[in-house]
Amino acid sequence: MQSENSLVWRGANIHYRRSGRGPALLLLKSEDSLPADPDFLAALSQDFDVVVPDHPGFGRSASPEWLKGIGDAAYFYLDFLAQLNLKQVHVVGCSLGGWLAAEIAIRDCGRLASLNLIAPFGVRRKGVPFGDIFLWTPEENLRNRFFDQAHAERFLAAALAQTPEQATAHLKDRYTTARLGWNPRFHNPELERWLHRIDRPLHLIWGDSDQVVPAAVAETWRERLPQTRLTIVERCGHLPQIEQPKATADRIKAFIIEVAP
């Protein structure tokens, strides 16, 4: 059972999708406008009450006046969890969504149970630059996100068939992505300084061939948070949740069962 929902928060309509039963799981999406992989979502929904918001300024959610930077989005999600009265929430965040999850957690882990971050932005490693998604063409943006180019081909074909409304929606996502991550480019120096405030089990999942956020960035996270579990996914790019949806969901579930039985 899947339901489409929305709530109005400080004047902005926020859309979220909810599916499955079990402990609460907040899935914070990546910035790439790609649809959530149905197998990934289905696998998580078997065991969890999965809440998938369209971030403020993305998808079907409004672009609120108050959204100026990543911190605004993080505080929004603290309020969002309170509004839905979700407790003991397992957070899964992908790319920009992973960055958001960390920003939420350094502010207040009170409602959180665990974090699974897939190739998160937010923390940089000097000498390991992020891919420049604002310089890349739309085609490069797809190809450079995948190890297996068959996935890129699939989404390229879909892009050719997209409606003007979809094109506009993707630009809206891109504009909000810039708002949050243009400068400093997809990282927040403050986040790195306060990473130690994440006092919940943390699992990083990273494709070994990630060209957007190279897997070497994980080292900085582990230096700050030595208890972090790191899973490197072989023959995989920036989006393990799409390239290996079932396996990635299984890894997340296994981690959650292990740390929060």
Binding site: F134, L135, A167, T168, L171, Y175, A178, R179, W182
Partner: peptide
């Protein structure tokens, strides 16, 4: 100049960009 260099997000409104 590529479109990505010429029209970074926000430089123009979405409508103007399109």
């Amino acid at each position: 100049i590529t479109p990505e260099l010429m029209f970074p997000p926000g430089y123009t409104s979405i409508r103007s960009l399109q």
